[in-house]
């Protein structure tokens, strides 16, 4: 991208490459931005993360009139800026805990930034409904509940219900859709969760890694469905540790490390630098 990211004056941050390489977009055709991140910082506050968390230690602090150990702040995303355009598929890479998922949540407006702003066209949505589902309910009720939680209407859910069940393959081995989800094997519930999540179309779609769960057959099916969703969505973000799937899906990659944007550019260039850095 021609919009080079400014890493807030941290010259010499590791791996600052010579990105970005530009010239991919068709010249002359105005590009429409769908997501603008402007110097986004995200901070988590964690209580009770002090070294000694037991009651005796707390009491001793009170007696000695010491202040409670300060709330631990985790600065998960530090000053990330970029502009995403319609039709782009953007991969997010980086080691564990580099802030990829946090950044996605902030773009989606689910986690408020500490500083900076995110502007979006329409409502970006995260692919995933796990948190809305309840293990004590039957698969059928979870399909309805998950659909409603994602903002679908009852009619839409009724219309898609057969597809969702069929796609999940839950009923391949008996009438499991009418059993509580806690009776499912982990693979089965992962399949149902994905099928519910993938039932809705999105403007700006964000996919967190580890979605392609289940057996080989289901993995192939879910990859195909993600491709379908990608084609319908205006812009796609994909978080993954699998460089192969990033290469297949994305034309642009953001590389995050310790919450900072290390590199932003075409997939091949960034992945090459990333692989050199990580020694893969």
């Amino acid at each position: 991208m021609a919009e080079r990211n400014d890493t807030a004056g941290r010259a010499g941050s590791p791996g600052t490459g010579t990105e970005p390489a530009d010239g991919r977009e068709p010249a002359g055709e105005p590009r429409v931005p769908t997501v603008i991140a402007d110097d986004v910082h995200v901070v988590y506050r964690v209580w009770g993360a002090g070294p000694k968390g037991n009651a005796a230690a707390a009491l001793r602090r009170m007696v000695r009139r010491e202040r409670r150990p300060k709330v631990t702040e985790v600065h998960a995303v530090r000053g990330v800026s970029f502009i995403a355009y319609r039709g782009e598929a953007i991969g997010l890479i980086g080691s564990n805990g580099s802030g990829k998922s946090t950044l996605l949540r902030t773009i989606a407006g689910l986690l408020p930034p500490e500083r900076g702003r995110v502007y979006t066209n329409g409502q970006p949505s995260l692919l995933g409904v796990n948190a809305a589902l309840m293990n004590d309910l039957t698969g059928e009720r979870n399909v309805v509940l998950g659909g409603l939680a994602m903002g679908m209407t009852r009619e839409q859910i009724k219309g898609r219900y057969p597809q969702i069940v069929e796609f999940s393959g839950i009923n391949d081995k008996g009438d499991f859709i009418n059993m509580p989800m806690r009776t499912y094997s982990s693979g089965m519930s992962a399949r149902l969760r994905f099928s519910i999540a993938a039932a809705k179309d999105h403007d700006v779609l964000m996919i967190d890694e580890a979605l392609a769960t289940g057996d080989k057959k289901f993995q192939r099916r879910s990859e195909a469905r993600i491709r379908e969703l990608r084609e319908q969505a205006g812009t796609v973000f994909l978080v993954s540790h699998n460089n192969r799937s990033i290469r297949q899906t994305c034309d642009r990659v953001l590389w995050l490390e310790s919450g900072e944007l290390v590199m932003d550019g075409p997939t091949d260039l960034v992945l090459k630098a990333y692989e050199e850095e990580t020694g893969r």
Binding site: R105, A108, G109, L110, L111, Q123, S125, L126, G128, V129, N130, A131, A132, A149, M150, G151
Partner: peptide, 8 residues
């Protein structure tokens, strides 16, 4: 978890 995953 629900608040951080879905919009409503």
């Amino acid at each position: 978890g629900l608040v951080r995953a879905l919009h409503f």
